[in-house]
Structures are given as structure tokens and as C-alpha cells.
Lab assay of single mutants.
Amino acid sequence: STHNELEKNRRAHLRLCLERLKVLIPLGPDCTRHTTLGLLNKAKAHIKKLE
């Protein structure tokens, strides 16, 4: 159905954006896999440090 396709595309776009963010944020050497929340929290902390 159309709704399923739209949802699939939305999730794919979100995944792509999170992958791009992961490249930009210093995550530390001990981190190989992150939850979305963990990645967003690290991004928030990094932005605050830059301010």
C-alpha cells in the first residue's frame, strides 16, 4: 500500500541522516554501535561544547 511505501521511505531517510550524523560526531574509540538516542545525545553534547 502507499502508506507502507511512505513509511519505508521515511525510515530509510532517517537511517541515512543518522549515518551522516555518526560521521560528523566524535564518538570515541570504544564505540562501535550506537542507539539512536545515544547518538543524538552525543551530538547534543558536541554542539554544546562548540558553543
Rank of each mutant, 00 (worst) to 15 (best):
L21R: 00
H34C: 10
A45E: 09
R11W: 07
E51D: 08
R10E: 01
K48M: 02
I47A: 03
E51M: 15
H3T: 11
K22G: 03
L37H: 05
P29V: 15
T32R: 09
H3N: 09
C31K: 15
S1N: 09
R15N: 01
L50I: 03
H46W: 14
L24S: 05
T32L: 15
A43L: 04
P29C: 14
H34A: 12
L6E: 03
C31N: 14
L37D: 05
N41W: 01
L18H: 00
P29S: 15
L37M: 09
L50P: 06
C31Q: 12
L40P: 00
E5G: 07
A45T: 11
L39F: 13
H34S: 12
P29R: 14
I25E: 05
N4K: 09
R11M: 07
I47P: 00
L21E: 00
E5D: 11
A45M: 07
T35N: 12
V23P: 08
P29Y: 14
A12K: 11
K42N: 03
R11G: 11
H46E: 04
L50Y: 06
L27H: 09
E7M: 09
R10K: 15
P29M: 15
C17W: 12
K49F: 11
C17L: 13
K49P: 02
A43T: 06
L24D: 00
G38L: 06
L39K: 00
L39R: 00
E19P: 05
E5H: 05
N41K: 13
L39N: 00
H46F: 04
R15C: 01
R10W: 13
L14K: 02
K22Q: 00
S1E: 04
E19T: 04
L27A: 11
C31Y: 09
L14R: 04
R10A: 12
D30Y: 11
T32G: 12
A12G: 10
L40V: 10
P26H: 12
N41S: 10
L37G: 10
H46I: 07
D30P: 13
T32A: 13
L16K: 12
L40F: 12
R10T: 15
H13G: 13
R11D: 08
A12C: 05
H13L: 12
N4S: 11
L14A: 08
I25W: 15
L40Q: 00
K44G: 07
K8N: 06
P26Y: 02
P26L: 06
N4R: 07
C17D: 01
E5S: 08
N4W: 02
G28I: 15
R33F: 09
N4E: 09
L16S: 14
G28H: 09
